[in-house]
């Protein structure tokens, strides 16, 4: 197995001094791996994702993303790293309301010349290709306002956006909690397949342990987080 894309050791994080939200001895996400991270709400999973994405700064310890030590990088460099190597899918309301479906999918390319360069052909064609892979082929659907799409469709657009330009890591934070069971399973397999095809490691976070079967490996946040404080 190649080097891990995310490697955390002795991470501590607190919103207020003395009240640790995260205290993780070790956590890794390997290249191309599809990892299920289970955590009930309030166990610090959003905080952990914020740290991995380089938006939050770790209080202590080491956080390595693709060999870059985040704790020593300047904020601008962390932003650059996120733009180039990370795709993010939120729980819901993932899309920028004033951009078209295509505009939303290609949004990361505006901030990352590296991901722009990774695309064959035009940005729009790449967006259409990804959307088609995720089951969104209907032309009338693509011309609709994003707020008029169903939640399931919105999440697929968000998945296409996270995958465009081939980032090494895709983070999904409870992306299926607003979907019904049938749509949820379909979404997870599509996302999982596409991540595998592009070679992205998938860090899928959910409180629903029942989803663990879809993934290569499952980790329970409460097992690795020694802080265990409600945050």
């Amino acid at each position: 197995m190649t080097d891990p894309v995310v490697s955390i050791s002795d991470l501590r994080f607190a919103w207020a001094p003395g009240r640790d939200v995260l205290d993780i001895e070790s956590f890794t996400l390997n290249a191309g791996e599809r990892l299920f991270l289970r955590g009930a709400s309030g166990t610090g999973k959003s905080t952990l994702l914020g740290i991995v994405a380089g938006v939050l700064e770790a209080g202590a310890g080491s956080v390595q993303i693709l060999g870059h030590e985040l704790t020593t990088l300047k904020p601008a460099a962390r932003d650059r790293l996120r733009a180039d190597h990370l795709g993010v899918i939120f729980q819901m309301f993932n899309l920028v309301p004033y951009l078209s479906v295509i505009g939303n999918v290609t949004l990361p390319l505006r901030f990352s010349p590296k991901r722009r360069a990774a695309i064959d052909g035009t940005e729009e064609n790449e967006a259409r290709r990804l959307l088609a892979r995720l089951g969104l082929t209907d032309e009338s659907l693509l011309s609709r306002r994003v707020s008029d799409l169903s939640v399931g469709q919105q999440q697929r657009v968000a998945a296409a956006r996270a995958l465009i330009g081939g980032p090494e890591i895709v983070i999904a934070d409870e992306p299926t909690s607003a979907l019904d069971a049938h749509v949820r399973d379909q979404f997870i397999s599509l996302l999982s397949e596409e991540a595998q095809r592009t070679g992205a490691a998938l860090l899928f976070v959910s409180h629903d342990a029942g989803l663990a079967d879809h993934f290569d490996r499952a980790v329970d946040l409460s097992d690795i987080n020694r802080a265990g404080v409600n945050a």
């Binding site: 994405a53 904020p75 932003d79 733009a83 939120f90 920028v96 949004l107 901030f111 990352s112």
Partner: peptide
């Protein structure tokens, strides 16, 4: 506020 978070997530710097 949400829009700003989305922009941040796809790589926008606070300066953006």
């Amino acid at each position: 506020r949400r829009e700003m978070s989305i922009l941040r997530a796809v790589g926008a710097r606070p300066g953006h």
